[in-house]
Amino acid sequence: MATVSIAGAPSRGSLLIHHRARQFAGAIWRLLAAFIPVFLLGSFFTFLLGSISGLNPAPLQLGDGASLSAVHALEQKWGLTRPFFDQYFTWLGHVLSGNLGRSWANNNPVSTLLEGRAIITLSAAGLALLIGIVFGFALGALAARYQNTWVDRLVTILSATISTLPPFIVGVVLIDLFATSLHLLPAAGYVSLGQGFEPWFSHIILPAVALSFDTVADVARQLRIGLVSAKRQHYVTGAVVRGLNGRRVFWVHTLRNAVSPSIAVLGLKFPALLGGAVVTESIFQLSGYGQFATQAAVQGDVPSVQAVLVVAVILVVIFNMVVNVILNALVPSASRGT
């Protein structure tokens, strides 16, 4: 069957391509419209925080007994006497071009200070995310498969319980159990992946597990609800009637439409994983970005704190954009123009 197109008039195929391109552009636009305000406001809060703290580099660079004129000269040098918005937009411009500023404490570029540390935090948070996805999906699928049986109730109770356990409590109990009592795993420290997978993994697994509990619970819950409601949909019956087997119906038809809430939850949980790093890193003595943030904040090293916060905001925004793109790809009908 050849499609006959009248010369000059666009064929229906090219119309469809055009239509898809418009939908795509619309999706990109909605994505940016949702996340640009978050980034701008997040970076604004970050900068504002430094500004209203009223701190200056003098205590860190000149010591306590500095003269007023010396302090003023220093403020001038760091540009702290300029109007607020002038300072903000200069800083924002630098951040967007990859320049995170220099630490007040040692004059080093913050990006260099953060480099090695971010890897540690992202290892722990990434592994926690992975644990959350794997165990959350397994538990949620199990509960949905055996809906209204003891398995379902057990999973429900389990996820309700573990979601109330804060990461730092879980961390302490894990150390007590696996490091102090059983001597199975190291209690603290970090070994880079370059020195082998096993040492790296043994140091990072406990912090990751401590961080992951909440994610496991929420993913399991959302997946269970998603699956239970997807199972009832007509398109599942449709697939069965067309003669597809149970496994195929589940993986191709039910799961695809049931996962969106649990994937959306990952987007919501990511900030908590990054935030939780502050405490877990302290418990497991990992010198990640959370420890860096705490030290810098206590010292009053404003540029370092701002850099850490803005990097966190950027990570959250990027992660959520990825989640959004995945959701749109999985469930195109949900992204219809609103």
Binding site: H234, T237, G238, V252, V331
Partner: peptide
């Protein structure tokens, strides 16, 4: 069946 749209997977 009735309401054919609902018997097709909305995402495929």
């Amino acid at each position: 069946f009735q309401d054919p749209g609902s018997y097709l997977n909305p995402s495929i």
